[in-house]
């Protein structure tokens, strides 16, 4: 009877190779997981001096004074989160527009070349964005964009105060430019993956082009969210471009024109020359917080994607 059971036969034949393959892939997966855990543990241990000195107050303190060795992370957490979220806010509509244009509207013959040009934006090194930001974009912000905002929207606290050109807003816009290619190319791929038959069905029911696109976007929302999470991750970790234009002052102000600071930037700027062990330990703790913030944001995004796709 056993010989007549073809399922079992195949199973046992596959086994040897499968087991090896399974274990190899498991090993690779474990290496990555282990690396993440190792990094977290290492940062946790190396920040012990700062954790025991400042406790949880580290997260809420606004002072950062390397000379008096008094450290607090709040301005950096603020700068990172605000600049990244603002970048996402600016980039998302643009990215979706680009993706819709590329997948639904433009003629096929032009699609590849335009996608290529947009994706090239993602290949520009961030230091180039930084220098372009400080020498070209910041002066433009100072002479045109910020005066406009302060004249017409100056009643809002975000657009008040001295105009420098550099600052939180400029950093957010540079970040938005940097993450747009990521979000738009993922959105485009997701839109392309939606079966043509759906669109045809929509048209057959008398839908306009706009209605068909709306339907496609609705179906693609989990993919768009996924792309946004990737973009946000890039924005949170971005260092060089941000530090060139954000103004690098550890402060929390209402106005987006004011200089601010980000977690990744302060680590990059101060780690190499930090001399006191408490200073180094505090910088490592900032790294740990950055790790935590990224973790939380990614988890939230996962939950969001999960809840959205379940409804879809």
């Amino acid at each position: 009877m056993n010989t007549l059971d073809p399922g079992k036969e195949i199973k046992s034949r596959k086994k040897a190779g499968d087991i090896i393959f399974e274990n190899i892939t498991l090993l690779f997966a474990l290496i990555l997981v282990g690396l993440v855990v190792y990094i977290a543990i290492e940062m946790f241990l190396d920040s012990s001096e700062s954790r025991s000195k400042f406790g949880f107050g580290f997260i809420f303190s606004q002072n950062w004074d390397p000379v008096k060795e008094d450290f607090g992370a709040l301005p950096f957490i603020f700068g990172t989160i605000v600049s990244s979220l603002l970048a996402l806010l600016i980039s998302l509509p643009v990215s979706i527009g680009v993706a819709v244009f590329l997948s639904e509207i433009i003629h096929k013959s032009l699609r590849t070349s335009i996608s290529f040009l947009i994706e090239i934006l993602a290949a520009i090194p961030s230091i180039i964005y930084g220098f372009w930001g400080i020498f070209v974009f910041a002066p433009f912000m100072r002479s045109t964009v910020q005066p406009f905002l302060s004249t017409y929207f100056g009643f809002l606290p975000f657009f008040k105060g001295q105009i420098y050109g550099t600052g939180l807003l400029t950093a957010s816009i540079i970040l938005a430019i940097m993450i747009t290619p990521i979000i738009s190319s993922i959105t485009r791929d997701v839109l392309k993956a939606i079966p043509v038959s759906q669109r045809e069905a929509a048209y057959a029911l008398g839908a306009t082009k706009w209605e068909a696109i709306k339907m496609a976007l609705l179906n693609a929302r989990s993919g768009i969210l996924g792309g946004s999470v990737l973009g946000l991750g890039r924005a949170i970790g971005e260092t060089m471009a941000v530090t060139m234009v954000i103004g690098n002052k550890a402060q929390i102000k209402d106005s987006l024109f004011e200089p601010a600071y980000s977690m990744a930037s302060v680590i990059a700027n101060e780690f190499a020359e930090a001399s006191g062990s408490l200073h180094i330990s505090s910088l490592i703790e900032i790294g740990l917080i950055l790790f935590g913030v990224t973790f939380i944001i990614n988890s939230l995004a996962r939950i969001l994607i999960y809840s959205v796709t379940r409804k879809a």
């Binding site: 400080i134 910041a138 060139m244 101060e270």
Partner: peptide, 22 residues
């Protein structure tokens, strides 16, 4: 590294030059 009471920071000599120039 000190906590400057005022102003904004540029990264490296080129960063400071960039700020002053613009």
């Amino acid at each position: 590294d000190v906590k400057f009471p005022i102003g904004q920071g540029g990264k490296g000599n080129e960063g400071v030059t960039g700020l002053v120039k613009q």
